[in-house]
Simulated scan of single mutants.
Amino acid sequence: MVRTPLTPEERERGERLGRLLREARQGRSMTEVAAGAGVSVETLRKIETGRAPTPAFFTVAALARELGLSMDELVVHCALQPA
């Protein structure tokens, strides 16, 4: 199965998610946050840098919980915005 290429808007949404997670870490290490969320450091790194712009829902939910972010905050901050 071939995955459809992401639109520029979807890439931008992934970058906004990454920025939000980086800011929410507030100096905590990637290792600490990733371990607390039950994800790999490499997964967190890819999300934060925008290289994984469409992470799995449960990955995002676990990171949000670990960082004290509500899902509502994520939706508001990362909603798809038309070009």
Rank of each mutant, 00 (worst) to 15 (best):
Q26G: 15
R25G: 01
E9S: 13
T4H: 05
T59M: 00
G14F: 07
G38F: 04
R45Y: 08
V41D: 08
V76C: 00
P8G: 06
A83D: 02
R25I: 08
A35V: 04
R13C: 09
E42K: 15
R51C: 03
L6T: 05
P55F: 01
R11Y: 11
L74R: 07
A52I: 07
R28V: 01
L80T: 10
M30T: 04
L21P: 00
L74W: 04
F57W: 12
L63T: 05
R11N: 05
A37Y: 02
M30L: 08
M1G: 15
V41Y: 11
V41K: 14
V33G: 00
G50A: 08
A37W: 00
P82Y: 02
V76N: 03
R65A: 01
E23V: 13
T31K: 13
E32Y: 12
R28H: 06
C78Y: 01
E9R: 11
R16N: 05
M1R: 11
F58H: 15
V39S: 06
D72N: 07
T43F: 15
A56E: 15
E48F: 08
A56S: 13
R11T: 10
E23T: 15
L69Q: 10
A83M: 01
A79P: 00
L80K: 15
V75P: 05
M71D: 01
E48H: 10
L17M: 05
E73G: 01
P5M: 13
M71P: 00
G14P: 05
T31P: 02
T54K: 00
R19H: 04
K46N: 11
K46T: 12
R3D: 08
I47Q: 04
E15M: 14
E23L: 14
M71Y: 03
T7K: 09
A52P: 01
